[in-house]
């Protein structure tokens, strides 16, 4: 089996012993069965068990292993090792803009707080019918590109507006979720949802920078969803 050595520069910080964070140079042997960055990280942890990162499904659906990889947010399990240029160390940092707990693990409280703030659940006050609420295939299609979000936080932590106002700007992930419910024909709370966002910070801090679209590992487009929310607000106002 052919093996090769990968060079890493990894952000390290253990609050128990480190005064401040530092970048560690470290290398690891990988073989041809190691296809993704996560495979290499698992190998690294076998060498140094103190390196800390989150991971779970290793197939890009759980959203655990979002990292800042060579300056760009992405999922370790979906990042192919072959995409890295030869001879240059791979630089790994925690997601930017959130407090670091340890090494590559960030505190996502603020991110989820924003997600929760948009009431991420279907609101329909009619008594539930015996059978399913009907929805045409066309109406269901409106939810495509919205419901697939895995809450990995790649988008929100790549957004300068979220960096400046993480407590007040909902961020791309939360706004995508907000539109997912606005767009659902079964949801009856559209007006309340728009009210909830009509604020100089919550929605309108989006300046269409589009970093979110650039980094989304699932290929979703939060900016488009945000644009649709704005359009609905204009329509409602005039």
């Amino acid at each position: 089996m052919t093996t090769r050595t990968l060079q890493f520069k990894i952000y390290r910080y253990d609050p128990d012993k480190d005064q401040k964070p530092y970048m560690q140079d470290i290398s690891v042997e990988v073989d041809s069965t190691d296809r993704k960055l996560l495979d290499a990280l698992v190998k690294l942890k076998a060498v140094d068990d103190a390196i800390s990162f989150r991971r779970s499904c290793r197939e890009g659906v759980c959203g655990s292993d979002a990292l800042n990889i060579n300056g760009k947010n992405g999922l370790a399990c979906l990042t192919d090792l072959n995409t890295f240029p030869e001879g240059k160390p791979i630089v790994l940092r925690p997601l930017p803009g959130l407090p670091v707990i340890r090494d590559l693990i960030v505190d996502m409280t603020q991110f989820f707080k924003q997600y929760h703030s948009i009431k991420p659940y279907l609101i329909n006050n009619d008594p539930p019918p015996e059978r399913e609420r009907l929805q045409s295939p066309e109406d269901r299609e409106e939810l495509n590109g919205l419901y697939e979000c895995i809450l990995c936080a790649c988008c929100s932590t790549a957004c300068p507006s979220f960096w400046w106002n993480p407590d007040k700007f909902v961020g791309p992930a939360g706004l995508l979720a907000a539109y997912r419910f606005i767009a659902d024909t079964r949801d009856q709370a559209t007006s309340e949802r728009l009210d909830n966002l009509e604020d100089p910070y919550r929605l309108f801090r989006c300046h269409t920078i589009m970093n979110c679209v650039d980094v989304c590992p699932k290929g979703l487009n939060p900016t488009l969803a945000i644009g649709k929310i704005k359009a609905m607000m204009v329509k409602r106002a005039i």
Binding site: D167, K168, D195, N196, L197, E198, D199, P200, Y201, R202, L203, F204, K230, M233, V234, A237
Partner: peptide
Amino acid sequence: RIVVGAHYGLKDWLT
């Protein structure tokens, strides 16, 4: 406590 809902977001954005 974070207080939001100033309701001038849309007006400013449109302006």
